[in-house]
Computed example of a mutant assay.
Amino acid sequence: MEYTMGTKLTNISVDMNNVKKLCKINKYKGEQIVYKKQPKNVVTSMTDDAILKFVYDTYIDSFLGGQENLVKLIHNEITPQSRDEISVVEFRDVIKTINSAFEDIKICSQTILELHGYLHRYSLIRGGRYRNEAIGFIDFGKLNDDFDNVHDIEKNIESKVENLCEKYYKFLEENKIQDLIIIAFFIMDFMLISPFKEDNLAMSKILTLLLLNKSGYEVGRFNSLGNLYHDENYSYFRTLFSRHVDFERESYNMNKWLDYFLSFILTAYEDLSEEMNLTRNKKETKTRRIEKVINSTLGYFTKDDVRNQCPDIPEPTINRVFNNLRKSGRIEVVAKGRSAKWKKK
Score class of each variant (00 low, 15 high):
98 I>N: 00
111 T>D: 06
107 I>A: 13
79 T>I: 15
91 F>W: 03
117 G>P: 08
121 R>W: 15
77 E>D: 07
85 E>P: 05
93 D>A: 13
124 L>P: 00
122 Y>E: 08
86 I>S: 03
127 G>R: 07
102 F>G: 01
79 T>C: 08
79 T>R: 05
77 E>I: 14
118 Y>S: 15
112 I>C: 05
115 L>S: 00
81 Q>F: 09
83 R>D: 05
80 P>C: 01
118 Y>I: 06
95 I>P: 00
123 S>T: 12
101 A>G: 11
110 Q>M: 09
97 T>G: 11
114 E>L: 14
92 R>I: 03
91 F>E: 01
92 R>E: 05
105 I>Q: 01
95 I>Y: 00
123 S>E: 06
90 E>S: 08
111 T>N: 05
125 I>C: 08
123 S>G: 11
121 R>S: 15
94 V>G: 00
115 L>R: 02
92 R>H: 10
94 V>S: 00
120 H>S: 12
77 E>S: 14
112 I>M: 07
112 I>P: 03
83 R>T: 09
123 S>R: 03
88 V>W: 03
114 E>Y: 15
116 H>D: 00
97 T>E: 11
89 V>C: 06
92 R>N: 09
96 K>T: 10
112 I>F: 05
83 R>S: 11
91 F>C: 02
120 H>G: 13
122 Y>M: 11
113 L>Q: 06
114 E>K: 10
89 V>P: 02
106 K>T: 15
116 H>Y: 01
101 A>Q: 10
91 F>D: 02
126 R>Y: 10
94 V>Q: 01
121 R>H: 11
116 H>S: 00
106 K>S: 15
75 H>F: 07
87 S>F: 14
86 I>R: 05
117 G>H: 15
104 D>R: 13
98 I>A: 02
103 E>Q: 09
82 S>L: 15
86 I>K: 07
93 D>G: 06
113 L>P: 00
90 E>R: 15
105 I>Y: 02
82 S>V: 14
102 F>M: 03
109 S>E: 10
80 P>S: 01
88 V>N: 05
77 E>P: 11
90 E>N: 14
114 E>F: 14
89 V>A: 07
92 R>L: 06
99 N>V: 04
126 R>V: 09
121 R>D: 15
115 L>C: 03
119 L>S: 02
112 I>Q: 02
124 L>S: 04
100 S>Y: 07
82 S>H: 11
123 S>H: 04
101 A>V: 15
110 Q>A: 14
109 S>F: 08
118 Y>M: 10
101 A>P: 07
79 T>E: 14
112 I>L: 08
123 S>D: 09
105 I>K: 01
103 E>W: 04
90 E>A: 11
112 I>S: 03
76 N>M: 07
83 R>Q: 12
97 T>I: 12
100 S>E: 15
93 D>N: 08
114 E>W: 12
